[in-house]
Structure formats: structure tokens, C-alpha cells
Amino acid sequence: MNNLTILVVDDDPVIRRLLEQRLAKENYSVLLANDGSEAEKILKGSHIDVVLTDLMMPGTISGMEVIDMAKNLNRNIEVILITAHSSIDTAVEAMKKGAVDYLEKPINFTELFLRLEKIATMRAILRSAEDLRQAMDVTETNASGTIQHLELTVRDLQQKIDTIESILRDDATDSDSRIGEALNILLN
């Protein structure tokens, strides 16, 4: 059902396990990283739709930096930040960096699933818009070829009619040769 692939980044093995189990139960594909540098490796090597990352982690790469990393690799990756104690400032900073959402520990799974569903819906809408555009492009290209051809054919025929008309109206020549000339143009 759910075809989103989620990367969970957290140094706490208990939380990693918990998230893995709950997400897998909801039919999400889950990958795990215990710090920023492991997350980087996975982000570079696999297709990820959503990153769920802890804010505070040991090592050189913080949760904030995971947002940057993911967004730089692929703007379409959505990041949800998880923190022990939230502050407006952290939330604002995370959103500025491109995080789509923000969750407080202990994780409320109902809330998390709702947000993931929202992301999945948004992706499906974008995908269908893209499909429609492509379908429109193909239709337009085909139609435009046909229309161009018709437009130029009508123009050429109109020119022929105009020439024939002026020949037939030309009193200076006798009618037999006028008709002959007109037929010539018509049949060519």
C-alpha cells in the first residue's frame, strides 16, 4: 500500500527498533542509520522518499545537517525532524532548511502516520500532474503536426484558387485557353 521508503536516523537503538517495527507494520520500507555519516552513505546509495531524523546525535553531523545533506542530494526528499524538547527557534530553523515537519519525543505514532500519509498523497498528486502534462505534451505534439500540415495545405489551395480565379477573369485571352490553363493548374 504505502510505497514510501523511509530512512530513520537516530543514535538510540531502542527508538530505531521501535520506529522500524511500527513503520514496517504500516507497510513502509524502512532503512536505518545510527548517525549522520551513516545516513549520508545510505542517502547517496539508495532512493529515499522521507528522512526521519533525530536532532541531537553524537558524531560530527547533527540532525540539522542531515536536512541540508538530504535536500542537497535531492530537493524532493522530505525530512521530518524529531526532537526531545522542542523550541520554536529550532522548528523555524529546521523549516527554513527545508524540513517539512517537526515531531516531539515521545513520538506520537498516530501523528507521524498522518504526516507520512500527507506526504504520500502530495507525491501521488504531483505524479499524476506530471503524467497529465506528459499526456498533454504528446497529444499537443501530434495535433500540432496535423494542424500545421492542414494550415499550409489550405494556404496552398487558397493560392491555387486565387490564381485560377484571376486566369478565368482575364478577358484578354480567349475562353478556351483560359479554361485550359486553369485546368492545368488544377490538375497539377
Partner: peptide, 22 residues
């Protein structure tokens, strides 16, 4: 527009082709 036509709409214009465009 690429799928539009002036045939039967305005006879004051004449279509011309250059490369793949009209």
C-alpha cells in the same frame, strides 16, 4: 498556439513555415 489554426477565422493572415514552426 501550436495546436491552433486561423483557417476560417481570419483571412488577413497567411501562415508561413520556418524550420519546424509556423
Amino acid at each position: 498556439g501550436s495546436t491552433e489554426s486561423l483557417t476560417g477565422i481570419c483571412s488577413r493572415f497567411v501562415p508561413k513555415r520556418h524550420l519546424r514552426a509556423i
